[in-house]
Design a binder for these strands. Structure first.
Lengths: 90, 90
DNA sequence: TCAAGCCACGGCTTATAATCCGTATTTTAA
DNA sequence: TTAAAATACGGATTATAAGCCGTGGCTTGA
């Protein structure tokens, strides 16, 4: 149900297949664990920007080519709802 | 020295200031810890794509507006150099 | 002056990203 | 069909992203 991760994973898979690379070899090129790469493509995990850049590099594209428009994503509130720690300014 | 993180942090700070928001209030809007937001802007930490989207949303811009061109970044090899686990196909 | 706003920075903890290795299942080509 | 390639998926561990709370330093306006 991770909308963002799912959209990214779908884009990665499409481009990878367009490049004719199997998942495990692609993971190797990107310098990412093969099992983790599977999870990324399935949208099961939330990746770092650094991983995004590795993957884009392996696909020879810009990171933005893998990212959905922000308007298409509704991100759910943080797990630890961050409670102010900011003085009210009446 | 994290080139990517530093570039992103710089972009975020610029846009935040352009919006006239102090760091702590901005962190609040983005739903991110104030102290962590400071580290992000200083380029001390590697963030997830999900955080990138939160920040972009708070800045009312697309994530790509915060990301440097891939050609301007040389990413260093993974810490755990991922050793094949892939059969040779001689 | 000093109070308040803004930011840097620290130590510590908690959540989770990422790895490693194995095996089951599906897909594809001969 | 069936063997091999490609992928799914699992458990367990390690690395690190992210949160929490405090403090200190700097700048500016009252």
């Amino acid at each position: 149900m991770e909308e963002l991760a799912f959209a990214i994973g779908k884009n990665i898979r499409e481009k990878r297949r367009a490049n004719g690379l199997p998942q495990d070899r692609f993971a190797l090129v990107a310098g990412i664990d093969r099992s983790y790469m599977g999870r990324i493509e399935r949208g099961e995990v939330s990746i770092t920007v650094e991983k995004l850049y590795r993957i884009a590099a392996a696909l020879q594209c810009e990171p933005v080519a893998l990212l959905p428009k922000i308007s298409s994503i509704h991100l759910q509130p943080p797990h630890k709802a961050n409670k102010s720690s900011l003085k009210k300014r009446q």
